[in-house]
Simulated assay, not measured.
Amino acid sequence: MSVERIGPPMVAEEREMLRAFLDYHRATLAMKAEGLSDEDLRRRSMPPSALSLLGLVRHMAEVERAWFRRVINGEDIPLVWSDEGDFQVAYDASTATRSEAFDAWQTEVAHARRIEAAAESLDVTGRHAKTGEQVSLRLVMLHLMHEYARHNGHADFLREAIDGSVGA
């Protein structure tokens, strides 16, 4: 199955623009993992680092869950792979499978989209668990774009090391 990545609009209202850029970055991560075996997806960047494409997907599932469900929606739920809030745990994908990681990630993305769509405005706030500060949906969407952009850069290098694919 081919990943469809739609470029963000050049002109749009703020919310539509944020939504489009976030979905663009989500699709980019999926494209970087497209067509690879579980073994390829588990390949580490450089020992002792646990960083792998599958680890990035797992990490982003945790990030989506933490910011949208726990912060904005106020759900009292543990993270997917670590109930102690250690996002780094997700990077260790040494025994993970594509289906396990992608199912969790896609589930969290679907929750995030529902939460964002149901919010009255980007000014809706939730409480940051560690600091207790109010956090707006706007900040969460911008933060997620930053997270994806940063990790998609890592994904570029990981994919190139696996099979030489570059770009996009």
Rank of each mutant, 00 (worst) to 15 (best):
I115L: 04
R43T: 14
V140G: 04
F21H: 15
E62W: 01
V89A: 00
Q106D: 13
S136M: 11
L56E: 13
Y24E: 08
V124C: 03
A168S: 13
I115A: 00
S82E: 11
R150T: 12
L137C: 05
A149Q: 13
V166R: 11
G167C: 10
S136P: 04
D23S: 12
R69I: 04
G7Q: 15
L139F: 15
D38N: 04
M60F: 13
Y148S: 08
A101K: 01
E147N: 06
A110P: 05
F87R: 01
A149I: 13
A168W: 14
R150M: 13
I115Y: 00
A93Y: 07
S82P: 03
E120L: 04
G164W: 11
D163A: 04
M1W: 14
A27D: 06
A66V: 00
G126S: 07
G35C: 09
T28S: 10
T95W: 06
R113S: 07
A129F: 09
T125I: 00
V135M: 15
H111G: 02
T107R: 12
E100F: 03
T107W: 08
E147R: 04
A112G: 09
E108P: 05
I72T: 02
V11G: 05
V3R: 05
T28W: 15
W105Q: 03
E13P: 01
A104N: 11
L36G: 08
A119Y: 08
A90D: 10
V124Q: 08
D83Q: 09
G132C: 00
H111V: 08
L53F: 09
A117K: 06
F87G: 03
T125R: 09
R43M: 15
A90Y: 07
A30E: 14
I162E: 02
V109L: 06
G132V: 08
A30Y: 09
V3T: 13
A90E: 09
D40N: 12
P47V: 13
W67A: 00
G7V: 12
H146R: 12
Y91H: 11
P48Q: 14
R70Y: 03
A161E: 10
R65V: 05
M17F: 12
E75I: 08
H111M: 09
H143K: 10
W105A: 01
E39T: 14
H59R: 04
V124Y: 05
S45M: 15
F21G: 02
V71R: 04
A149S: 14
E64K: 01
I77S: 02
V109T: 03
V109P: 02
E75Y: 08
I115K: 01
G35V: 07
V109N: 02
E64N: 00
A104L: 06
H128F: 10
R65P: 03
E160L: 04
M145C: 15
G126H: 05
F87N: 07
F21C: 07
R114N: 07
A118Q: 00
V166Y: 07
R127G: 05
M1F: 15
Q134E: 14
V124G: 05
A33R: 03
G164R: 01
E133K: 15
P78D: 14
A110M: 09
R114P: 03
G126F: 00
M10G: 15
H151Q: 11
L56T: 03
S94L: 06
A117G: 04
E16T: 14
H128Q: 07
